[in-house]
Amino acid sequence: MPIQVRGEVLDVRRAGTYYVLSITAPGIPESFRPGHFVTIGIGGEESGLILRRAFAIHQVQSRGVYGGTLDVVVGVHGKGTRWLSERRRHDFLDIVGPLGKPFVLPKEGVPCVLVGGGYGSAPLFMLAEQLRERGCRVDVVLGASSEDKLYGVLDIKRVSSMLTITTEDGSSGTKGRVTDVLPGIMESNNSAVVYACGPMGMLEAVAAIAAEYRAYSQCSVEEAMACGIGICMTCVLPVIGEDGRTRMVRSCVEGPIFRGDLVRWAEIGTVPADALGAPALDAS
C-alpha cells in the first residue's frame, strides 16, 4: 500500500546527462519490489507546477543511518525535472510510493535478459540483483542515442552475467539499437524472460522480439500521468485482459509493468474499435 512521506534529500549527483537523487523515505523501501515507482511533488506547497512527476525506484536501502532511503534517476526534460535536479542536501520533497505493480519474477532460475533504454535502466539494477539471488542468468543490454545518455554502465556490470552496450552514434559499444543485438543474445543464452524499460518504440520492438523467441516479456511503460494513484484516468493504454477483451487501462495502477504480448503497442494513442466501451462505429 502506498504512503505519502516527507523525504529529505541526502545527495544529488550527476551521472552523464542525468541526476541521481538519494532521498529519505521511511516506510517505502520496506514494501518496495523492483518495478515500483514513486511520484514527487514539484516546487513546494505553492508551486504553479501542480502535477507530480513519476520516477522508477532505482535503489532502496531499508536500514542504515537514515532509516529507509531510495534513489531515483532524473532526466531533465522540462521545468519540473529541472527543479528536481536543482535540489540540494537537506531540502525536503513530498514523496508518494511505492506505486504500481512490480516486475513478475520467475519461480525458477531461468535465463533472463534485461533491456534498458537511456535512464530506463534505473529499475533494472535491483531487479538484476533479485534475479541473481534466484539463480537466474542475467544478461543486460543498455542502449541510448549516445554514451552520455547511458545510465549506470559500471554498476550494472557487477550484477550482470554479460553486459552489452549499444549507442546510435557509436560513441560506446555496438553502433545501433538494443534491438539489433537482442536476438543474438536471446539465441545464445536461451533467454526465457525479457524485462524492458525505456521509450514506447523500444518496448514495442523488444516485445516483438521476445514473442518471436517465445519468451515471456515484462515491459515497464512510460505514459504521462497526472496523479500516479489511479484517480485521474489520464495514463491509459489499450491492453488485452485475461478474458481476451481489450480495455483502456491505467498504467499507474494496472502497470507500469505489462506483459509485452498483451499491450496493443501500435494502437497506443488511439482507442481500438474493439476496446470495451469504444464508440460504436458509424453506420455511414
Partner: peptide, 21 residues
C-alpha cells in the same frame, strides 16, 4: 461502459491542467 478518448488526455498548464478524458 465507455472507453473515453485517446491519449494524450492531459496537459499541465500554469497552476492547473487541461484534461480530456
Amino acid at each position: 461502459a465507455r472507453s473515453g478518448r485517446p491519449t494524450p488526455r492531459m496537459c499541465e498548464t500554469p497552476s492547473g491542467m487541461l484534461n480530456s478524458i
